[in-house]
Measured scan of single mutants.
Amino acid sequence: HNLTITQGKLFFHYNPKLCLSEIHKMEEVSGTKGRQERNDIALKTNGDQASCENELLKFSYIRTSFDKILLRWEPYWPPDFRDLLGFMLFYKEAPYQNVTEFDGQDACGSNSWTVVDIDPPLRSNDPKSQNHPGWLMRGLKPWTQYAIFVKTLVTFSDERRTYGAKSDIIYVQTDATNPSVPLDPISVSNSSSQIILKWKPPSDPNGNITHYLVFWERQAEDSELFELDYCLKGLKLPSRTWSPPFESEDSQKHNQSEYEDSAGECCSCPKTDSQILKELEESSFRKTFEDYLHNVVFVPRKTSSGTGAEDPRPSRKRRSLGDVGNVTVAVPTVAAFPNTSSTSVPTSPEEHRPFEKVVNKESLVISGLRHFTGYRIELQACNQDTPEERCSVAAYVSARTMPEAKADDIVGPVTHEIFENNVVHLMWQEPKEPNGLIVLYEVSYRRYGDEELHLCVSRKHFALERGCRLRGLSPGNYSVRIRATSLAGNGSWTEPTYFYVTDYLDVPSNIA
C-alpha cells in the first residue's frame, strides 16, 4: 500500500525493539523526510534493546553428524571492536523451508527459537588472519532439518551509529543413524509349514526405512522333555500350542467401542483428552525405555581390526524358502538304536541362519518350516543398504507352526516275539517326523474274553527296548493296539495285532 503524509511529521519514542533503520525507511515511504526535528525521533529510546544489523554474515563451514552440527561463519568486528559482546545463534526444527525470524513471537518477546549466546573469538592483530567464530550444536535429532541463523550482539553506541551483522536463515539436516526397533511384532501360524509375521514401523526411523531383515531359527525343545518319565503317576503330560491366527481386521481397528449394538453396526467412541494424553505418555515412556535398553543392555560386537582377528559373527547367506525346513542338525536320541526319531534339535552355532529381506511392506510369510516346531524370529529395521547396512537392534518374537495331521501315527506293522515265561516283546517304529517329539506310547492289549488293559511306555523305555515287553501273560489269544502321544496330543491307534500265548508248562520236552 502507498502511504503519503502531505502535512505533519513523524514522532517515535520509547520503541526499544524498533531499529532506527526501520524508522528511516518509514520517513522515505511516507514522504516526511526532512520535516522531523532532532528530538522527534529519539536516538536513545528507539532500538536500544534490539540488534540492528546492516551487514550480512556468511557461514564459512558446515559439518553434520547424526546428532551434531558444527558451524563456522566469517569474522565480524565493528569499528570499535570492544562493542562486540558476542553472537546469538538461533535454531529450531523446520520440516519445511518457510521459516521466518519472527515465527511464534508474542507480545512478551518470546519466540519459538532456541538461542545460544556465543563469546567472540580472540581478536588477531592481523586483519587478514582473524579467527572464524563458530559453535557445535549438540543433542539434535537424527535425520531432522533445522533452520539456523546467527547475528551479532553489540553494545549501545553513544554516537548512535547503527552497526551489526546478521546471516540469512539456512537449512541444515542432520545425518541418518540406526533406527529404533520395529514396533509390535506379531507372529502367527496359518499352516503346519508357515508363519505369518506382521509389525509396525519404528517410532524413530532416523532416516528413510529402506528394508527390513527377518531372521528365523528353529528352537530346540526343553531338555526336561527328553529326561522326564511322563508315565509316572502324578506327572502331567506336557503340551505345546501353536500360535493362533490373526483376529479379523475389524476387531483390530483402534479407537473402536468394545460393545456392539445388537441391531447392527455401531460407531466408534472418540477417545477423551485424558485417554489420548495417557497414550502419549505411555508411548514416550516406551521410547525412553527402549533407548535405555539399547544403550545399557546391548553391547556392540567388536569388529575385526587390522591384526587379522576374525569377526566372530557368522556370515549372512541367503537361502531359498524351500530350504528352511531342514535348518537344524538332527541327532538321534540314543545312538545305539537307529530307529528312534531325530527330534532332539541342538543347533550348531556355526550354522548360517536363513533370512529374508523385506522391502516396502511390514509383513512376511515364512514358508518351508517344520510342522509343530518353535521358531525364534528376529526382526531388524534398516535405513541404508549400501555401502553397508545400517540397521536397528533386533526385536524378537516366537511362534510355533501348526501340527501336521497323521504325523504322530505309527507307520509300519507292530511285530512281536514270544519268549519263555510268557513274555512277549512288542516292537514298532517311532514316527519319523512327529509333531514336536514323542513323549510316550500307549499300549492297549486284551486277552479274548477279558477286559482291555493299558500300559504306558516312556520315551526312554522305548529307546532301550525298541518297544516294550509284556510279562506274566496268561495263555490265550491276544490283540494289541499302540498309539503315540506327542507334544500336540495323541496320534491314531494302530491296526490290531494278534498273537497267541501258550502255557509254557505244557511245552513238550526233548528229553527222552
Rank of each mutant, 00 (worst) to 15 (best):
K236F: 04
G306T: 12
L455S: 10
I418Q: 03
H294A: 12
T210H: 15
Q256N: 11
N477T: 06
T333S: 11
N435K: 00
V297F: 09
P431S: 07
E350W: 08
A512V: 07
T328C: 13
H454A: 06
R240K: 09
G472E: 03
G308S: 11
A336E: 14
G325A: 15
C456Q: 01
V480Y: 08
E227I: 08
R459H: 10
L293C: 02
C269D: 04
T401H: 00
S363W: 03
E465V: 13
S262V: 10
V439I: 12
F499D: 01
C456F: 01
D204L: 13
R481Y: 10
Y292W: 14
V424M: 13
G467W: 02
H425M: 03
T502F: 09
L473H: 02
T210V: 10
S474V: 13
S348A: 15
E452V: 10
S251Q: 09
R483A: 09
E227T: 06
L473M: 05
S315P: 10
L487V: 07
F298T: 01
S363M: 03
K271G: 02
P403A: 04
S492M: 12
V297H: 03
T347A: 07
V439K: 08
Y396T: 04
S304P: 14
P496Q: 03
G472L: 09
S283Q: 14
G322Q: 07
G264A: 11
V297K: 02
R483M: 13
Y498P: 03
P312H: 13
G368I: 04
N206P: 01
E279K: 03
H461Y: 08
I410S: 10
I410Q: 08
H425S: 07
C231E: 01
S248W: 13
L225R: 11
Y498A: 08
R319A: 11
R240C: 06
S342Q: 07
L213Q: 10
R240I: 07
G472Q: 08
A220E: 13
D291Q: 02
V439Q: 12
D409L: 08
A336W: 05
V214W: 01
Y504K: 13
L455F: 11
D273T: 02
C391Q: 13
G368Q: 14
K460H: 08
K278F: 08
P314S: 15
S486M: 00
R390T: 04
G412H: 11
E362G: 03
R286D: 01
Y498T: 08
V507N: 15
R301C: 10
V397A: 14
S398C: 08
P300W: 05
Y396Q: 07
L237E: 09
S341M: 14
I276V: 04
V334N: 06
E281H: 12
L280F: 13
S341H: 10
H416A: 07
I366A: 07
L426M: 04
T288P: 02
N510Q: 09
R286K: 07
Q380W: 11
M427E: 15
D323L: 07
Y445F: 03
N326P: 13
E260N: 13
F226L: 08
L369T: 11
T347E: 15
K361M: 10
C269W: 02
E452T: 06
N477M: 07
F355Y: 08
V480C: 09
D506C: 03
G264M: 12
V214I: 12
S248L: 12
V393R: 00
S320Y: 10
A336L: 10
R353L: 09
K406L: 09
S341K: 13
S474F: 14
A263Y: 07
F298P: 02
S479Q: 12
A263V: 11
P346S: 14
V296Q: 12
G467Y: 10
S492Y: 03
Y478P: 01
G374N: 08
L237I: 13
L280P: 05
Y375H: 10
Y212A: 07
E282M: 07
H416E: 04
D408H: 01
E279I: 05
R353M: 13
L228T: 05
L487K: 15
P332R: 05
N490D: 03
C391T: 10
R483E: 00
I209N: 07
C468G: 05
G374D: 04
L232D: 04
R218Y: 15
D222N: 10
Q252E: 08
D250L: 12
K432C: 10
D222L: 12
V457M: 06
H211G: 11
E389Y: 11
K460S: 11
R286Q: 02
R483K: 12
V501W: 03
F462H: 13
Q275T: 06
P238L: 04
S474L: 12
Y445H: 05
E451F: 14
K317G: 06
S509T: 06
L505M: 07
R400Q: 04
L369S: 04
R481K: 14
P314V: 13
D385S: 00
G234P: 11
L437W: 02
P354D: 10
H416Y: 12
D291H: 02
I438P: 03
P245S: 11
L225N: 04
E388V: 09
L437P: 09
E404D: 12
G264S: 06
V480W: 10
R400P: 02
D450Y: 13
R481D: 00
S398I: 05
P475M: 08
S283A: 14
V414S: 03
M427D: 03
P475V: 09
F419T: 11
Q256P: 12
E282D: 01
F215E: 04
V443K: 01
H371A: 10
D250K: 03
A309Q: 12
L225F: 05
E356F: 12
W493S: 06
W216P: 05
V501T: 07
T210A: 03
G489Y: 10
K460A: 10
F298H: 02
V480Q: 05
T343K: 12
A335F: 13
N295Y: 07
S274C: 11
L277H: 06
K317L: 14
N360R: 11
N206R: 14
E404F: 15
